[in-house]
Write a protein that binds this DNA or RNA. Sequence first.
DNA 1: CGTTGCTTTGACCACTTGGTCAAATCAAGC
DNA 2: GCTTGATTTGACCAAGTGGTCAAAGCAACG
Lengths: 202, 202
Amino acid sequence: MTKSAPRTRIQEKNRSAILEAGLEVFSKFGYRGSTVDKIAEAAGLSKPNLLYYFPSKEAIYLELLSGLLDTWLDPLRALNDDGKALPEILDYVGRKLDMARDFPRESRLFANEILQGAPRIEDALKGDLKTLVDEKAEVIRHWIAAGKIKDVDPHHLIFSIWALTQHYADFDTQVRAVLGGQDPFPGAEHYLEQLFTSRLKP
Amino acid sequence: MTKSAPRTRIQEKNRSAILEAGLEVFSKFGYRGSTVDKIAEAAGLSKPNLLYYFPSKEAIYLELLSGLLDTWLDPLRALNDDGKALPEILDYVGRKLDMARDFPRESRLFANEILQGAPRIEDALKGDLKTLVDEKAEVIRHWIAAGKIKDVDPHHLIFSIWALTQHYADFDTQVRAVLGGQDPFPGAEHYLEQLFTSRLKP
DNA sequence: CGTTGCTTTGACCACTTGGTCAAATCAAGC
DNA sequence: GCTTGATTTGACCAAGTGGTCAAAGCAACG
């Protein structure tokens, strides 16, 4: 559920333009490095006009963050105990890697917030996120008990999937510098599939 | 080689106090989020006094960064073609994980810089870093050709080691939130050892 | 056309921030 | 104790920042 639903078409347009601009700017400069002026310019509005739609810089940031956390966890929610364990996990890896490729700004915004100690979403991490991860760790434990995959620590398995996929979005600059500008994603997809298959296939 | 060598004992003491304070503050708030006042306070100096030792906020940041990149790459430099391939790689993983545990501020400072697009160290990444990684990739390729480890893309192997180890420093907040405050490192060490052994052991 | 309510803006303000500077303090050798 | 050079500081400044506000523009409807 989004904030108080905008009524007019123009409100809807401007609010979403601001959020898009906010994502662009916040993900590039971090919260402190972003200015209301920059966001306003990116959204094609004047600063006071932007502040007519959102009460403050922080309000934009918070709305982005809360929307993001959901989107970001959707692939994990989709991880279900539907028979084939390994393909299910490989699918999750693939979906996360796709997101790193297609939504790097979202990944970086999130990374920025966690790096600063997650001051604004600590509760969500200790609450919803922990609950969801614990739940999925249980699913993985069942797969292990049933002999469908090898014995691994489910939490660290999940962490490793996050780390490996998000690395390609968050550290994009470094990865491309080392690869000499070459697109990392085809290679990454193959590498990660092999990596997790080797570790998990019984 | 460090900057112009400080002459007096007091200069040495204050300069290193400032660098220590800078590391503390920059790694916590990022470049833009850090103020000269905060760094000065952490170093136990007044702002003008701090600026007597360093010409600007950026100078502190740059000196930290350039010193860091070296330290950060030392473990990779130590990766040598000395017979046993897999233990060599597992050692590298272990050393990087130790650094993530013992020097998380350094890792976060670096992560912050890369996240912002590495505006101040792009050249170093495309130069020294790429050279070093390409060189070590060649070592790994030899191991593969000699049948000492399984066939993997050397660059992505190195990326995966970086991603997995630094994740525990950079995303510490998230990891601990999900684990309910439990120390992640013992579990991480075991998980990573198994992961790379499974993938690489011929 | 004129009223009404949504939208936009120029001018402005208080506060933070990086950095300067002249003057004061201090330490050490003479 | 006095001189000399290193160190420290209070006062200050210009630029940038988040945010306010009253007034102006604008669209739609009677």
